[in-house]
């Protein structure tokens, strides 16, 4: 039985291994980025760490999950799920970030009311 005339894409072994090592390397990188006292990027930190995670996720999706060689529609399904997740998170964050100041003021007000024993 030959698979040559078969439509399905077969991933090559070296590619799978290379992907795996890239993923491990990125994991090490992210741990270093996230824990080392030398590399501190402040507010950027979380974005860098998330960026690395996204690179890793893309590797898994494109190669391990064959999206790179698969029907476009399957990729569209995944991407649209991510887009709607983005909408969900984005709108919720947009809302909650808006009353941050009020909330802080309220907490401080309550603490002032309670007096020095407050906390």
């Amino acid at each position: 039985m030959s698979h040559a005339d078969h439509k399905h894409h077969v991933a090559s072994l070296p590619l799978l291994w290379a992907t795996f090592f890239a993923l491990v390397a990125l994991t090490v990188l992210t741990v270093v980025m996230g824990t080392s006292d030398q590399i501190q990027l402040g507010w950027l930190d979380v974005w860098v760490v998330l960026f690395i995670a996204t690179v890793k996720a893309s590797l898994v999706a494109l190669i391990f999950m064959h999206l790179a060689a698969d029907k476009l529609f399957n990729g569209v399904v995944l991407v649209s799920a991510l887009v709607f997740m983005g909408i969900f998170l984005g709108m919720c964050l947009m809302d909650s970030s808006n009353y941050l100041a009020e909330q802080q003021a309220y907490v401080e007000g309550q603490q002032a009311l309670l007096g020095p024993t407050g906390s």
């Binding site: 709108m91 947009m94 809302d95 909650s96 808006n98 009353y99």
Partner: peptide, 11 residues
Amino acid sequence: SGQSPLASVVF
């Protein structure tokens, strides 16, 4: 509900 005014306007 206490949703922020900005979010309400957008929605």
